[in-house]
Design a protein around this nucleic acid. Structure first.
Length: 197
DNA sequence: CGGATTTGACCTGCGC
DNA sequence: GCGCAGGTCAAATCCG
């Protein structure tokens, strides 16, 4: 899904001796295509909402299950911070939003939600509809490409952070890790995700 | 001039 | 305790 800037599209119809009727036809075709894309976008949005709802329900179930099983055997001290998210050293084929281990941690200490997605992009810019402020960049071990650190521009009101890094196997793919959930509305609704998954 | 980005320094957790 | 690596800070710089 690309950006939906249909409203700003303008065509230069005065080129040479192009016949007016021909231009009208092209314009009509483009409008038709645009309407089709908008309808498709709407359909996908409703699907996403439904999936999100199911995901939320499942998560609650998982947390309840974990709660019931771990309450009997949880005398261990809480592990320290990095175990859950892990460094880039681990190479599981992550496409789940977050891991059950993390869910366990959430039960014990309210940790931020972590989700990861793969996005094909030329630059380090990820258009996810939110406005981010970069606060750091670091070269990470075993990866020639630097990792960029972003905070939601609504911080400190919004605690969400984002890490963006190129995939070592396919450098045209960005690995985007989100931490936390936005507690405000999406400021740029026109910008939709262009993730692969 | 104000906000965003860059980048070196510093902090912190983890493994040995 | 020490060193390494990831994460964050904040001053300098850039840019509209």
């Amino acid at each position: 899904m690309g950006s939906n800037n249909g409203s700003s599209i303008s065509l230069d119809l005065s080129i040479g001796t192009l016949q007016f009727s021909n231009s009208c036809m092209i314009e009509a075709e483009m409008l038709d295509e645009m309407n089709r894309v908008v309808a498709e976008n709407r359909r996908l949005s409703t699907m996403l909402a439904a999936i999100s709802e199911r995901h939320r329900a499942l998560r609650v179930q998982v947390l309840e299950m974990i709660n019931s099983t771990s309450s009997s055997s949880s005398t261990k001290p809480a592990p320290k911070k990095r175990n859950c998210e892990g460094s880039l050293g681990y190479r599981e084929s992550v496409n789940a939003s977050y891991k059950v281990n993390c869910a366990k941690e959430e039960v014990r200490e309210t940790r931020p939600r972590i989700s990861r997605m793969y996005i094909r992009s030329d630059g380090l810019v990820v258009r996810d509809g939110y406005h981010w402020r970069k606060y750091g960049q670091k070269v990470i071990r075993d990866n020639p490409y630097p990792r960029a650190y972003f905070r939601c521009s609504f911080a400190p009101v919004c605690p969400v952070k984002k890490k963006v890094q190129r995939c070592t196997e396919d450098h045209s793919v960005l690995v985007v890790t989100y931490e936390g959930e936005h507690n405000h509305v999406q400021p740029l609704p026109g910008d939709s995700l262009n993730c692969l998954r």
